[in-house]
Every structure is written in C-alpha cells, then in structure tokens.
Simulated scan of single mutants.
Amino acid sequence: MTTELLNTLYVQTQGIELRLEEDSVRIRHPDQPGRRILPLRRVNAIVVYGHVTLSTELLTRCAQDGRTVTWMSRTGRYLGRLDGAVRGNVLLRHAQHQAHDDTETRVAIARQVVAAKVRNSRWIILRAARDATPTPQTAMRARANELAQALTKIPDAADIDALMGYEGNAARLHFEALRHALRPDDGIPPFERRERRPPTDPVNAALSFTYGLLRSLVHGATEQVGLDPYVGYLHGIRPGKPSLALDLMEEFRAPLADRLVLSLFNRRQLRAEHFDALPGGAVNLTDDGRTVLFQAWQELRDKPATHTLAGRDVPTGLLPTMQARLVARHLRGDLPAYLPWTAT
C-alpha cells in the first residue's frame, strides 16, 4: 500500500517502482495493472520500506529540489537518506563542533537532554496511572517516584558517562511502568521488556517501527535548520551515527512514540492480526499494521502541542524543528542554555 501523509509519501508495498514523469512521480507495481501519478509539488519527502525501486532521474530531481528520500527496512529500522547538497551556515556547524570539543558545554547540553527525557517519561507514566486499576497504578507511581529522584541527581552529573547511566536507568524504569499501562487485545502477549534486535513481540515491533518514524522526522529537522546531525553531545561522535538526531529524539520518545503505541494497543487499533511471527523469534508488523501506524502518526503530527517557550500551540510534527532551532540559537550564543521541550 502507498499512503500520502502530510506531504510525505510512505511506500511499503514490496516491488513498487517510483519513476519521474515530467513533474510527477509515477508509481507502478510490476504485478498489478495500471499506475498512479502524484504531482511532485504535493510531496516534500519520500520514505520507502524494504524492496522499493526509485529511478535515477527521480533521485536526481529530489536531490536538486531538496526533497528528502529515506530508506527504512521493512521492520522500520533506519537505513539512510538522500538530502542533496549540504544546507546551512558553515559557521553554525563550526560552532557545533566547538561545543562538542568543550567538555563543559557538551555536558551542559547533555544534562538538558537527559533531564527532558526523564521529565517526559514521568509525565506519560503519571497520565497512564490515572486510568489504571489499583495494582498497576501503584507500580506505575512507584516508577514515577524513582524518576523524580533521578531528576534531582542529573544537575550534579559531572560527565557524559554519569549521564548515560541516568539515561539508561530512566529507560529501564520507563519500560517497567509501560508494561503495567498496556491493556492490549486478546492474542497480544504481555510486554515484559524492551527488545530491539530483533523485536520479539508485537509491542516491541510497534515501538521499533515508530522510533524509526520519529528518527526520520528528527534527523530531517536538524538538517533543515543547518545543523550537522552526526555531531551530538550525549551520544558523542561515531562513524555513521546521527548523534545529534539521537540526542533530540530522547525528549520525544515517551510523549510521542511510546504514548502513540500505548494508545493504539489500548484502543484495540493494533491487534494480533497486525503482526507476523518470523522464523527465529522475530515479530514484524504486517502491511495492514503499518498502515494503522502511518495513519496514527499522521494524526499525531497534525495535533497541536503546547510549546511553552514559543508561547503558543504548534503542530506536533514541527516540535523537532523548533527544538533544532533552539539548539542552533544556543550554539550561536543567542541563548545561554539549550531549552528542551517538555510535555504538558
């Protein structure tokens, strides 16, 4: 199935071919008659999953227009992207590198990233606890209290290793609480812990897929603002690792991705028939399951979210771009600190 969402074309049907036809994308499946034409002016990004072919002419045109093309695995794992020529002010990127090389500045930014992750994780846990029965409610509030205690320690973290320890512990507490918040349909096994490579149950499969959508959104936001997505502060610098994008993802994981997955299971929108068990124990979303997630992701991106610093509501899909701009303002010296987004 091919789905056009918020000017992003998501293509998941295996074997589809995308070709440039004048100022349009021609979409064709070799085993199905007919074709679909989509004007390029309606598309500002293309995301493809698995075996999908794009012609050289289409890729060239996307690069020239600044239209991103992102490749994902069928399970939603990020593989790579095409962005065209490098955009942005070289002085901003130079300041970004200098901030990474300055230990005090790097740790200060990383503290804000981890604190935002913990606050937003605690927020979703407390919201979920309000509607829970007494036993899971008690467990979730206990995890929320532990996260509150962790928040008091983060300002005193002296280095990145300490902050990574707090971040890892916060993730563990978060998923322990998420287990109690889930009330899935019959046929969905209980969620026990986070399993990524590969996901071994439906909840983990949905989480991994949604994190892929979030990563693509945040990665694009950093490049749109002119930052280097590969120079981060909490996650450091490693070949092929978009560290800044991963940094900014931390504050959005719980309130966007995890909350979306939680809602889809608890509302029975994701059900057992939306998942396939593969040899070796891996679990994947079916095409129909991915369509459910795409549609929910579209609705979430359109939904207004409060941005305290901006003093107004903005579409949720624009939050990563606004935060990338705040990173840039801090690096330029316009803000004394990076100010992360926290859910309200």
Rank of each mutant, 00 (worst) to 15 (best):
L38S: 00
P336N: 01
A277Q: 13
N145T: 14
A110P: 03
D186G: 00
L260V: 05
E21K: 13
M140V: 10
V113E: 00
G226S: 09
I16Y: 11
T135Q: 12
N89F: 06
L91K: 08
P336C: 02
E250N: 04
L264M: 12
R119G: 00
T210V: 14
R61H: 12
H330S: 02
E223W: 03
T56A: 15
K303L: 06
T133F: 09
L82H: 10
A150Q: 15
S216V: 14
S73D: 08
S73G: 14
L214V: 07
H174A: 05
G76K: 06
N204K: 01
W71P: 00
D156R: 15
P242R: 03
N204W: 06
I124W: 04
L173E: 04
V225Q: 02
A63D: 05
L293V: 15
G281L: 02
A324H: 03
E250I: 07
A257R: 10
A85Y: 02
V113C: 01
L331S: 08
W71M: 05
V11R: 00
V69F: 11
H100K: 02
V47E: 11
Q98S: 13
A108Q: 11
T200L: 09
A337N: 13
D258H: 08
V218G: 06
Y211E: 06
A343W: 06
L213P: 08
Q224E: 15
R238V: 03
F265Y: 08
A150P: 00
A150S: 13
G168Q: 04
L163W: 06
D247E: 03
R127M: 03
N169K: 11
T344K: 13
A144W: 08
P155C: 04
W123R: 13
G289D: 00
A310N: 01
A110S: 06
R119K: 13
R332D: 09
V118M: 05
E176K: 10
N169D: 12
A129P: 04
D156V: 07
P39L: 00
D159H: 13
A170K: 03
R268C: 12
V114H: 11
M164S: 11
N145I: 08
E299A: 14
L264G: 06
H274I: 07
A150E: 11
A257V: 11
W123I: 00
D186T: 14
L309G: 08
D156W: 10
Q32C: 02
A144S: 12
P202C: 05
S121G: 15
L182R: 08
L278F: 10
L246Q: 05
R106D: 07
H307C: 10
E104T: 14
A305Y: 13
T135P: 07
N44A: 12
I125V: 12
W71N: 09
M322Y: 15
R74N: 06
R41S: 15
T200R: 15
F191D: 10
G226E: 07
A139N: 09
L256T: 03
H235N: 05
S208K: 07
